[in-house]
Write a protein that binds this DNA or RNA. Structure first.
Length: 208
DNA sequence: CACCAGGAATGTA
DNA sequence: TACATTCATGGT
């Protein structure tokens, strides 16, 4: 009767091992502030861009020792061209360099990641969604994966699988978000695992 | 050479 | 509100 819970169980059976393995390596349940900031940066860089190119950009940032939001912000204000050079492989570098500045400005002027994690979900979502360069998907990815907030992420993978599994044929972001949210417990761990399983499933599907 | 990858901003009617 | 266009790299 509940297609969403059935899908969740099916994905756990098929990819549960991958979730315990590679996913937990990169996206542990307990994260350092620096790991949370890397996820925030990555969520901007990955907009309409494949993860391999994002990885190249993150490698450049690491090599240049520019991985925290503070360091991104300092470099962006002092020498945008240098920041652009580092994130170039991720594409859209003129836009994304500005987006990284607007997001890091917000986190730095509001007391940093730890302080911002204390904000209430609905307030936080409005504030992050209002930032330049942050639409619904990027916003919710940041809230769910970087800040451990219970909000379900809708992306192209989620749309694909919900169409294929006859969950919904609509594409509207907030409509789909409600459909998934209604069927699940409001728990960030569940949301992270479910969405991660969808990503793993769809990426393996396209590799064939 | 054409097409795509976990989007979002901007402009138009 | 609802679409169309633009942004840009690296892989296939």
């Amino acid at each position: 009767m509940n297609k969403i819970l059935d899908l969740f169980e099916k994905l756990k059976l098929e990819h549960g091992e991958a979730l315990q393995g590679q996913w937990m390596l990169w996206c542990k349940r307990q994260k350092t502030v620096l790991q949370r900031e890397e996820i925030i940066i990555g969520s901007i860089l990955t907009q309409n861009t494949n993860w391999k190119n994002v990885g190249l950009a993150l490698d450049n940032l690491k090599e240049a020792k520019v991985l925290s939001l503070k360091e991104i912000n300092d470099l962006g204000k002092k020498d945008v061209e240098k920041l652009i050079e580092l994130i170039r492989p991720a594409g859209y570098f003129n836009s994304k360099s500005k987006y990284l500045l607007s997001v890091s400005d917000y986190f730095l002027t509001n007391g940093g990641v730890k302080k911002i994690m204390e904000k209430e979900l609905s307030v936080l979502r409005k504030e992050v969604l209002a930032l330049k360069g942050v639409g619904p998907e990027t916003c919710d990815s940041i809230l769910l994966y970087a800040l451990d907030k219970p909000i379900f992420v809708i992306d192209e993978y989620t749309r694909r699988i919900s169409r294929r599994e006859k969950i919904s044929y609509k594409k509207d972001y907030h409509y789909l978000q409600k459909v998934f949210t209604r069927a699940l417990l409001k728990d960030f761990g569940q949301y992270q695992d479910f969405h991660a399983l969808i990503v793993i499933n769809e990426q393996r599907m396209s590799r064939i």
